[in-house]
Computed example of a mutant assay.
Amino acid sequence: MLFASFASASAAGQDATANPRVVLETSKGAITIELYPDKAPKTVENFLQYIDSGHYNNTVFHRVIGPNPRQPQGFMIQGGGFAAGQPISEKATRAPIPNEADNGLRNERGTIAMARTSDPHSASAQFFINLSDNAFLNHTAKTQSGWGYAVFGKVVEGMDVVDQIARVQTGRAPARVSSGQTAPFDDVPVEPVVIRSARRAQ
């Protein structure tokens, strides 16, 4: 789990002031994401550190909520936290980062945002790509219930790949969590959707 004003950068001839882009090479195809450090500096810095360290390589989209009667385009696809395998296994992360959801960006179709627990400031490595305009995820107040989920970029190429991932068959599957125990997870792709590599765009 788009009308905000986003800066854009050309794919070629990017200068020092251009927004950074990353490419997720997935088992379904490539997804290029433009990041907005002017709006979410700490979130973008954190995400790029995970990119540069290779953290996202060979991870999976472990939660996919695709098209349904309520949301014909689906809800979101979530990844970045579990290594591929049988079962999938939660990866260690760095310390959580502050929630920057009060940056004016909204959870609209194609945007990428940080996943977190009920603690507003618990995001670390996991992220999700919105399949629909999910206004209920937006920041409304600096309270436990109002913080929302921090948007920090947008898919600029490969939204067709995102939609292809959204349509995969899902079910309940075991996952090994950080405690070492195995727990059942819902909405897990039956056939793993793997992020084979994640890198900065050239």
Rank of each mutant, 00 (worst) to 15 (best):
S118E: 13
Y36F: 14
F185G: 06
V44M: 07
G74K: 03
V151M: 01
I33H: 00
V193H: 03
I165P: 03
R106S: 06
A9L: 08
N107A: 04
V188T: 07
G85T: 08
L137G: 01
T111Y: 00
E34M: 10
F136P: 03
Y50K: 05
A83D: 04
G66H: 02
G29D: 07
G13T: 07
A135S: 10
R116W: 02
A18N: 14
R200H: 13
Q14W: 11
P120Y: 02
D163M: 11
V188Y: 03
I65C: 04
L2F: 08
Q49P: 05
P37K: 07
A12S: 15
R172I: 15
P184I: 09
A83K: 07
L24V: 05
S53Y: 03
V190Y: 02
F185S: 11
Y56E: 03
T43Q: 00
A201Q: 12
F185A: 13
V60E: 02
D186W: 04
N138P: 04
A92E: 11
T143M: 01
I165F: 06
R196T: 13
F47K: 02
E108A: 11
Q71W: 11
R70D: 14
P69N: 12
Y50R: 01
Q49A: 14
R167Y: 09
V177G: 03
A183F: 15
P192V: 05
K42A: 04
P41N: 13
D160M: 09
G54M: 07
I129Q: 01
G146E: 00
V156D: 05
A198V: 14
A11C: 08
R109D: 09
K42R: 15
S197Y: 05
T143Q: 02
F47H: 03
H62E: 06
F185N: 09
G104S: 04
T111K: 02
A141T: 02
A83V: 11
E45T: 15
Q49T: 14
I97R: 01
T182D: 14
S27E: 06
A95N: 15
P41L: 09
F185H: 14
R106K: 15
N19M: 06
K28N: 13
E100H: 00
S124D: 03
Q78P: 05
K142M: 05
R200P: 02
